[in-house]
Design a protein around this nucleic acid. Structure first.
Lengths: 164, 164
DNA sequence: TTCAGTGCAAAATTTTTGCATTACG
DNA sequence: CGTAATGCAAAAATTTTGCACTGAA
């Protein structure tokens, strides 16, 4: 199964950390051991982490962190724009690092996942949101469920998955 | 809660109902009063219904239908392809009628859900898919998580939810 | 009549909250 | 020190399951 990994660059991570510090400051929130542990573990994670996974990682360093703190901190991470929640079909909410965001193209036959980005689409999204009543887009999800040329039965069609 | 309308045509509804009957038949499932009530209420619903909403509607006609039956029937509806589950970020799973596809704009503050369509975006999606390797787009999900003007703190800003 | 389907309530899951205690600033 | 934040456990909220009873075929 094709899995696209997106590791945020060190540069992005630095910016996100700064954003977090600024968020704490501007909301008069304290810096605590636990929050630091959780945020660091979250930013270090390179995929969509569930609460459980995140808690497990945090506890390796600081064994007595509780569930509630992870939930509360994750809520702050979402509010501050560092984390995006995603619901897959397993009933667990997972969180992805903002800035590692990509849209996905999925071939429904071979399950390959490609990523894409389109500035034009993003621009149109904002137009749509503005037109519908002055909304500001915070984030989005965009998934295209497709058939690759091969699965379409096109003569000589390839699946990018198997090329090269 | 503001819900945009997008009614499947009578023609589509008829086809879906036929699909349901065929599903029951081919899986040797019984037709029951409750299943009929639930499926009809679901197909009649013109937005994304949550379990609660659907149960409430069903109980108007048949007051002693239980939660469990709704859950179980909805699972069948998903299996049969009549319903698509959607997880927005308000913690409730919602279901939309297949064939009544639309994209969504969600206000993360008031949880209002609006629908939108943009031919331009759809055209760009196809361009993207073609460019990535000759893919054909079968369907897609597109969700914009936004803040309404009021939630943005814009002076005099309204939430379309409360206008009029 | 038979057994799939239902309703209820209890269990399992996931997330939130109340409150005494800890520790940041 | 004062009070925001934590940890724990209890409460909510959502979904699933067990089981005796009902009703479709």
């Amino acid at each position: 199964m094709g899995q696209a990994e997106h590791s945020p660059t060190r540069e992005i991570l630095r910016r996100l950390k700064a954003q977090w510090v600024e968020f704490l400051r501007s909301h008069s929130l304290n810096t605590t051991q636990q929050r630091e542990n959780i945020v660091d573990a979250f930013l270090r994670s390179q995929e969509h982490v569930s609460i459980d996974q995140l808690l497990a990682r945090v506890r390796k360093r600081n064994p007595k962190v509780g569930y509630a703190t992870v939930y509360r901190t994750l809520r702050l991470l979402v509010e501050s724009g560092l984390a995006n929640p995603r619901q897959f079909e397993d009933g667990q909410t997972r969180y992805e690092v903002a800035g590692a965001h990509h849209d996905h193209l999925i071939c429904v036959k071979c399950n390959m996942i490609l990523e894409f980005e389109s500035e034009e689409i993003e621009r149109l999204q904002e137009q749509v949101a503005a037109r519908l009543g002055g909304f500001r887009v915070l984030r989005h999800k965009h998934e295209l469920y497709c058939l690759c040329p091969k699965a379409q039965g096109i003569p000589g069609g390839h699946c990018p998955n198997e090329k090269e």
